[in-house]
């Protein structure tokens, strides 16, 4: 009897030791992953900053005006082209307003960091099997 109990406890100790070890290992990997992510975020943020500055530089009003003169058949709106309201346009007594006038000036910014792909041979993406670390992190996520 005592043997069974002892054996049971020994097995338990082994299992718990293995669990503790793997948990610790997982946490370390998660920490490294987090560090990697925050470094990536910082890198992306810096890239966004540069891009925004470049955007502002490239959309300088003087430059835009020059480009618009050259490539567009548009000129600035004049006062007589503005209507006070939709109703004031001749022959439009019955109207349905579908959208409101845009009085803000939304600046279009690039939505994503541009990716510069190399023109070399496209490698087949390696499919990684879900390892222990992935499985346990998935589990941890689920438990939360």
């Amino acid at each position: 009897m005592i043997r069974v109990v002892a054996g049971f406890f020994i097995v338990m100790v082994m299992i718990s030791a293995a669990t503790v070890y793997s948990l610790k290992e997982t946490t370390q990997q998660l920490k490294a992953h987090k560090q990697q992510l925050s470094a990536d975020i910082l890198k992306d943020r810096a890239a966004i900053k540069v891009l925004r500055a470049e955007m502002a530089y490239l959309s300088q009003p003087a430059r835009l005006e020059k480009l618009s003169r050259r490539f567009l058949a548009l000129s600035p709106a004049r006062a007589d082209q503005m209507a006070k309201s939709v109703t004031s346009i001749a022959g439009r007594e019955n109207f349905k307003q579908v959208a409101f006038p845009v009085d803000e000036f939304p600046l279009l910014l690039p939505q994503e960091k541009p990716v510069f792909r190399k023109k070399t041979v496209i490698r087949q993406p390696r499919v990684r099997k879900a390892g222990f670390y992935d499985r346990i992190s998935l589990k941890l996520e689920k438990n939360e």
Binding site: V50, A53, A56, E104, F105, L107
Partner: peptide
Amino acid sequence: NGVVMATNL
């Protein structure tokens, strides 16, 4: 309107 006027590079 959110146009950058001064930033750090």
